[in-house]
Computed example of a mutant assay.
Amino acid sequence: MRPVLAALLLCAMSAPALAQTPPATIGQQYVPAPWWMRDPVIASIGHVRVELQANRAGFNATFQSVDRSVAEASRKAADQVRALSQTLGAYGVETVRVETSLTTQPLYDQYRDENGVLRDNTRADRIQRYQAQATVTLNIRDVRQLERIYATVVASQPNSISQVYFSLEPDNVAKSNLAREAVRDAANRARSAVEAAGGTLGAVRVIDPTGRACQTDVLAGWPSYGSGAGQATTVSEEVVVTGSRMMRAEMAPPPPPSAPAGQAPSEDQIEAARLALQPPLQVLTDTACVVYGLN
């Protein structure tokens, strides 16, 4: 009885491993077909492409201040952005999100070495001044307010301002519409192909929004197993695209009168700094695989 019980126990322990054994081995010429290919089928890939206006924008501006005291330099830099931050905050977080950071660095006494190269005397007792830099980073979520927000920052006379970048964040409705249109396009392609061949389209066997089921290795049977024959690829359907727009220096308007330090720019200064900033069109694509039976 003991040998019989040992054999039964061995079979029970090995059953999960046997159940996970792939239906094909590397190098095997013929492999079992998926269940939905036991009868004649047609696999159709639908493609959809749409252009949508970018709905996000962003840029950053920096304000610098130099003083012999690190505390005073930081205070002056903070004063430059305090009123601006309050003005931008009045738009609300659904329109623009503002992040402000403050950094300081020492400015050392300089000297020339034996080769005439100008170097910093990086010793604690050789610090001449401190430079504080306040950076305002803006993420505009309502691009209809972009021109006014950008003009407000420009009128505040920052030491530097970055280029404006644009991006598209599609909502769930747009994604659902893309997926539906991709499946519809796959159905139209399959119907047109079958009718051209003189056949009749049957029932739907598989609907795969990722398009994976229509790949060659699946239609041939099963994906290869093991590292020697390549790994299956995960396909991501969400497309995020970005763009940017730069203003040429020779086309830049003359700077508006600067606002006093610590004060928000006036309406006249904002209007004088307004520029045309039209969000560009961005491309979204999607695919879907639909497998039909043939009558």
Rank of each mutant, 00 (worst) to 15 (best):
G202F: 05
A220E: 03
A77Y: 03
L18A: 15
Y150D: 00
G202Q: 06
P23E: 06
P23D: 08
C11N: 15
V291Q: 04
T100D: 08
I26M: 14
Q263R: 06
I26G: 15
Q263P: 01
Q269A: 08
A54K: 05
P22Y: 05
L8A: 07
T100W: 09
R180W: 02
R245V: 05
N159H: 10
T104V: 12
Q282K: 13
D109L: 03
Y130V: 08
L118Y: 07
T137Y: 08
D217Y: 11
G89S: 14
L219K: 10
A232V: 02
A77H: 03
C289V: 00
C214W: 05
S162T: 10
E99V: 14
N159M: 09
C11V: 15
P23Q: 09
D109K: 04
Q215E: 10
C11Q: 15
D286T: 05
L277Q: 04
Q20G: 11
R97E: 13
V206G: 10
E250H: 14
V136M: 11
L52E: 14
A179R: 12
Q105I: 01
V41E: 06
L102H: 13
E267P: 00
R75Y: 12
A155D: 01
A73T: 14
A203E: 02
E147L: 00
I127Q: 01
I270P: 02
V96T: 13
R49V: 09
P32N: 08
S156L: 02
N159D: 12
A132H: 07
R49K: 12
Q231S: 00
L84T: 13
A203D: 03
E114N: 06
G46C: 02
C214V: 06
S266W: 08
V173L: 14
V70I: 09
E99R: 12
Y292S: 07
W222L: 06
R180A: 07
G58A: 04
Y292K: 07
Q278W: 04
Y292I: 01
A179K: 13
R189G: 14
P279L: 00
N188L: 11
T216Q: 08
D185E: 00
P209K: 03
A132D: 07
I140E: 08
E238D: 15
S176Q: 14
R148W: 02
Q86M: 11
